[in-house]
């Protein structure tokens, strides 16, 4: 019921329409090729991958693709010839904002910041989450108990509340501020989102490791006297790469959404120098609702939806692709 997409949301169980009685079909394809084939067969995921690639290219090549500078008005305003809140399609494709800046260009700059936050947070969360979740799943015992207790409570609380409170705590501890910088810096935001976000990943990886641990080849390795770290790094991790990729993908959307939510409530990165993010653009659009400047609402919002949609579809496709149960999928 909560209205938040979990940062690293633990998604509904994967599609399970398979018949367990069948056993795995023998084919000439290697597991990797099969996974690739299944991913391509997931049409939405495949299309999303193409769209996302295009978005990323656009965003990376901002010096070429953006038409105006980050803080640049499209022309110098004169009396009787204002540059603010211009409707789209004439001088600016997506219209201009209350400062006369080109919305199209600003969406590109905003996406840059959002994607960067998403990527760094996701990598941080996945590293931390894999480490803790892997250890907890492999060792079990008290570490596992604590992980499960803490994350149970975390998952039950609204994400925004957790984020706001943790943000307040981090802000008020001096030595933390020294490391994390100002509360409105991108660095602070990435660390904050990582501190909250690793837990979802940890649960996912823990489950995967627990499952793998019971499998024959791991037992065989243990029987042969392989050390814990060898089993962990040579067997468990390589066999979890698929799951880790899935977690990484969902962590990116989770982080982007969390950034946007925080920005929407005024806890986002500092926009002082004209810097923006998708969340900040959407926050600004609140002011555009009463006067009916629809473009300021629709373009950032729809762009954000398309971006998360692409990443969610890719995650869904990846999950199906790495799920051994999906190998029998009906045509």
């Amino acid at each position: 019921m909560t209205e938040f997409q979990e940062l690293n949301h633990v998604d509904p169980p994967a599609d399970l329409h398979h018949d367990d009685s069948i056993g795995v079909l023998q084919t000439s394809l290697s597991p990797k090729r099969m996974a690739a084939k299944r991913f391509v067969n997931h049409r939405a995921a495949f299309v999303s991958a193409i769209v996302l690639t295009m978005i990323i290219i656009f965003v990376v090549l901002s010096p070429i693709t953006a038409r105006y500078g980050i803080n640049e008005s499209i022309f110098k305003a004169e009396a009787g010839h204002p540059n603010q809140n211009l409707a789209p399609f004439n001088l600016a494709w997506f219209g201009t904002d209350s400062n006369g800046r080109d919305l199209y260009s600003r969406i590109i700059y905003g996406a840059q910041v959002s994607l960067m936050i998403g990527l760094f947070t996701a990598i941080g969360s996945v590293l931390l989450g894999t480490l803790v979740g892997g250890l907890a799943g492999y060792k079990g015992g008290w570490l596992d108990d604590i992980l499960m207790r803490v994350t149970d409570i975390y998952l039950a609380l609204p994400l925004l509340v957790v984020l706001v409170i943790v943000r307040g705590m981090l802000k008020n501890v001096d030595w933390v501020t020294a490391i994390m910088g100002d509360t409105s810096s991108v660095r602070f935001l990435v660390i904050l989102l990582t501190v909250v976000g690793w837990m979802g990943v940890a649960r996912l990886i823990r489950g995967q490791v627990k499952q793998l641990k019971e499998r024959e080849f791991i037992e065989a390795a243990r029987a042969l006297g392989a050390s814990s770290s060898r089993i962990m790094f040579r067997h468990l991790l390589p066999n979890s790469v698929g799951q880790i990729m899935v977690a990484l993908t969902f962590a990116v959307v989770g982080a982007i959404s969390a950034e946007a939510t925080l920005s929407f409530f005024g806890f986002g990165p500092d926009a002082g120098s004209g810097m923006t993010s998708l969340g900040l653009l959407i926050r600004d659009s609140k002011k555009a609702v009463p006067p009916g400047y629809w473009w300021l609402v629709v373009f950032p919002g729809v762009f954000f939806i398309i971006l998360s949609l692409c990443i969610n579809f890719i995650g869904d496709g990846l999950r199906d692709a790495v799920d051994p149960k999906m190998q029998q999928e009906v045509k």
Binding site: V253, T261, N312
Partner: peptide, 25 residues
């Protein structure tokens, strides 16, 4: 597909778009 689209529509976006459409426009 609808479900994944639903997941991707963050509440603050749907909220202001609905506000814009049903209220102002």
């Amino acid at each position: 597909t609808g479900a994944i689209i639903g997941f991707s529509v963050q509440p603050f976006i749907s909220a202001i778009i609905l506000q814009l459409f049903f209220g102002v426009q």
